[in-house]
Amino acid sequence: MEQTPGNTRGLTLVFTGNGKGKTTAALGMALRAWGQGMKVLVLQFIKGGWKYGELKAAEKLGPNFVMRQMGEGFIKGAGDDGLEAHRAAAQNALQEAKKAVVEGAADMIILDEINYAVHYGLVDLAEVLDIIRSKPPGVHLVLTGRNVAEEVANLADLVTEMKEIKHPFAAGIPAQKGIEF
């Protein structure tokens, strides 16, 4: 069905679970939106430091596909020595997300790994819920990451859980270029 002003509705979508593919699914959707002439903004809450393949691709897509790494890299656990640095980075990303969503800065806004940031207490769940509720009607909002809060899932229009069946890391195979980064 072709979108017309009368039937356009921005959706809230969640990709969660312990399986691989959450960010990949969101980026596939982003590429589809970009191909339809929509502006896309991706804010990465955890990823930082590494030059992931998707960053290189986003640079080539031009000004209507913006991806910003705002994190400090992956968190090792609740006892991670750098948890305060992670928290400060996530808070900064949250402020950027609030502003982008309220202003309708893009047709699709992806908050990559935000569920993980909530789970580790880097950002407050109530603030994330406020962002979802403040979304303008024409904006698609995508949230990724493991351990989605039930309250987030309840507000979403679509929730997909990625379930790990088998992963090469369990067999001692390291992360592969083009697959994990």
Rank of each mutant, 00 (worst) to 15 (best):
L94H: 04
Q95C: 12
E96I: 03
A97F: 02
A97C: 00
A97K: 00
K98G: 08
K98Q: 08
K98F: 06
K99H: 01
K99T: 12
V101H: 03
V101S: 01
V102P: 10
V102L: 06
E103W: 09
G104W: 07
A105G: 07
A106C: 15
D107L: 04
M108A: 06
I109T: 01
L111G: 05
L111K: 01
D112P: 00
D112W: 04
D112H: 01
D112M: 11
D112E: 10
D112R: 04
E113T: 09
I114K: 00
I114Y: 08
I114F: 09
I114E: 04
N115L: 03
Y116L: 14
Y116F: 15
Y116I: 12
V118T: 07
H119K: 11
H119F: 09
H119V: 05
Y120S: 01
G121F: 14
G121L: 13
G121D: 07
G121A: 13
L122Y: 12
L122I: 00
V123R: 03
L125N: 02
L125H: 01
A126W: 07
A126E: 12
A126K: 12
E127S: 14
V128H: 06
V128A: 14
L129Q: 10
L129G: 00
L129D: 05
D130W: 06
D130S: 14
D130A: 06
I131E: 03
I131P: 01
I132Y: 03
R133N: 15
S134V: 08
S134M: 11
S134H: 13
P136K: 15
P136I: 15
P136Q: 15
P137H: 14
G138E: 14
G138Q: 13
V139G: 00
V139L: 05
V139E: 02
V139M: 06
L141H: 02
L141P: 00
L143V: 09
L143P: 02
T144A: 05
R146W: 14
N147C: 08
N147T: 10
N147S: 12
V148E: 10
V148F: 15
A149R: 11
E150T: 13
E150C: 07
E151V: 07
E151A: 11
V152F: 03
V152Y: 00
V152N: 01
V152L: 07
V152H: 01
A153K: 11
N154L: 06
N154W: 08
N154M: 10
N154F: 05
N154V: 12
D157M: 00
D157S: 04
L158W: 06
L158S: 03
T160M: 13
T160A: 13
E161H: 04
M162K: 05
M162H: 10
M162R: 11
M162G: 07
E164G: 05
E164A: 12
E164V: 05
I165C: 10
I165L: 13
K166M: 04
H167I: 10
H167K: 11
P168Q: 15
P168S: 14
F169L: 14
F169V: 06
A171H: 12
A171R: 15
A171Q: 13
I173W: 03
I173K: 09
A175V: 08
Q176L: 00
K177C: 06
G178D: 07
